[in-house]
Design a protein around this nucleic acid. Structure first.
Lengths: 334, 334
DNA sequence: CGATTCTATGGTATCGATACCATACTTTCA
DNA sequence: TGAAAGTATGGTATCGATACCATAGAATCG
């Protein structure tokens, strides 16, 4: 069969079932509009011939691709994976499929991919980044389809956004440190050029820590050969070298926090007695008893599901910014 | 623009540039076949109008969708994410896009999704599972496109497979335990009904442990509300309850192993002195100093890249089984 | 019972890009 | 210089499903 055999067409099915092609189309798309007897005949023919409806043709004639495009920063962080799952499931119920690409956190890559995705004439476009090049913004606003930015709440979304305030999250976790009696609070991050979210978390930290003992910020340049936890360990070392009397470290991500925590243990530092450590994201490992990391939890799947709902609802108000919030999860490290 | 405005078509661009539509098509697809002067005019018109080529129409007329479909068990495990990245990158170089769906490890879901994906007339289909329902197998072999199964080496692939031997991996890690002097070796897994890979790793364990002190196997039923590490901790407790003199625990995944390791620490058991623990997969956290888990590493990205290569090569030998191997990484837990 | 509405079905044009073939023009070489 | 080969471009049919309109027959109702 692999060799040159052409696909069965709707016409073949129609002939076999003794009906018109349009009836086959209706039998498959809107079975309710076809007499049960006819439906049976068509289905039999479909099964016998192993027919699979050609969406490439369907998309052209109906001007509906039944595809939603998504551009994700990375799949390697499970948080986005949960969002993708929520989105996929929500869309599948309405017969929409997801076409996925990744930008590796690079706005140029994003800008290059947008036309490719738009070429598929998707019915909506979902992005997990909130920083776009000018040309990307132009293309997006001209596209004439709903554009949803997830995982952040930009001041001026291209169209609409579903996420939470990273700044508020950063402030909340810092405030938790202060409320539990810490005064000398440091911030540990990575210096990734286009990571707006990290910058916002840092802003949140600043909002909260300004009136206290002053800012203590370490932002390590990312190294491709070093894992997140490794960087966390190095970062804690740097913080303690510069400010030995630090009482708490707010980390920009759980990965960094887990590394910092291990480093503290290695040095025999009492956590949380002498030093408190917090993460951000609540990844799978954060909750296990050995780590028991205090962190900010974001419900990624809920963001994805909500995005799907909004897309399916049909009219997405321009400028909508939907805050899905976050939860402070206190465990054993603060 | 969002309101009812229709997409710019190739005809509009052609008119603007003062050429025929086919010339626009060539200018965009095969720029080398168009005179530089003409190319310039076309490109100018494209930019002015903000034209984006309609792939839904292109797919129909050329009978080439430029899409490869992938059906992944889950995106929540970063290992598959690396494979997807390798695949995406490899395909992008040839202008192919990936259409992704997830099965959540359920063959029925997979079987239901296959027709949907086939409807997009993909040029190849990639699966990360090696168990298929009969109807899925039938559809796949009739599809007339390359079908690649990743992450395993099934005895009878539908078409071709790229992966490694989970059985050999299970045997290798068990042998490592034996070679480092352990005799009473237990296996800790999850009892997920369709997880062939886990079963094969268990087989590998059996191959190796048969002639020793006998099998000690615990397979916990998965609980949706408990994380992998939690299950690992529970599993270790169960093993030690049933066989208190166990010297080594081979875990079916790093997640389980990390939980088991924490539980051992909690009980004050000397690891690796009195008890050795190993994982499988080498996830991000496995290498961090605090865990330092001995494990089996699989290069997921390489599997994805190799799959892309094979798809692009054009002729995929029927029955090909390409072994990408694995590496035993010895760290501090054995 | 005839007029009217509703239901099931079919014929045909259409979506937008590309394959195929044709043609005008340029270059090459005996 | 004229024939042959090559290059750049365009016209038209086509891919396969669906929208739109038409029609035949069944159901409804005064």
């Amino acid at each position: 069969m692999a060799d040159g055999r052409k696909w069965v067409t709707m016409g073949d099915v129609a002939q076999r079932a003794g009906v018109g092609t349009i009836t086959v189309s209706r039998a498959l798309r809107t079975p309710g509009k076809v007499r049960p007897e006819t439906l049976r005949k068509v289905r039999a023919a479909v099964d016998e011939l192993g027919y699979v409806l050609d969406e490439t043709a369907g998309a052209l004639s109906s001007q509906r691709s039944r595809v939603v495009a998504a551009l994700v920063s990375t799949l390697e962080e499970p948080v986005f994976a949960a969002t993708i799952r929520g989105l996929t499931e929500g869309l599948a119920e309405a017969g929409l499929q997801l076409m996925l690409s990744t930008t590796q956190y690079d706005p140029e890559t994003e800008a290059a991919l947008i036309p490719t995705l738009l070429g598929r004439r998707p019915e909506a476009l979902v992005l997990t980044s909130d920083r776009h090049t000018d040309s990307a913004r132009a293309l997006l606003s001209r596209a004439g389809i709903p554009v949803l930015e997830l995982w952040g709440l930009p001041d001026e979304p291209v169209h609409a956004a579903v996420g939470f305030s990273n700044r508020a999250g950063g402030a909340a976790i810092t405030r938790h440190m202060v409320e539990t009696g810490r005064r000398r609070v440091a911030f540990l991050g990575l210096d990734r050029p286009h990571d707006t979210r990290a910058k916002l978390r840092l802003e949140g930290y600043r909002d909260c820590v300004g009136q206290l003992a002053g800012e203590r910020i370490v932002a390590l340049p990312p190294a491709p050969d070093r894992s997140g936890p490794d960087m966390g360990a190095a970062g804690l070392a740097e913080i303690l070298r510069r400010w030995p009397d630090t009482e708490a470290v707010v980390c920009v991500s759980d990965m960094l926090a887990s590394g910092a925590l291990c480093e503290a243990w290695r040095r025999g530092i009492d956590v949380p007695g002498r030093l408190a450590i917090s993460g951000f994201g609540d990844f799978d490992m954060a909750g296990v008893s050995a780590l028991a990391l205090t962190t900010i939890r974001i419900d990624g799947a809920a963001i994805g599901r909500r995005a799907a709902e909004l897309i399916l609802s049909g009219d997405l108000p321009m400028g909508l910014r939907e805050d899905m919030g976050f939860t402070l999860v206190r465990r054993a490290t603060t």
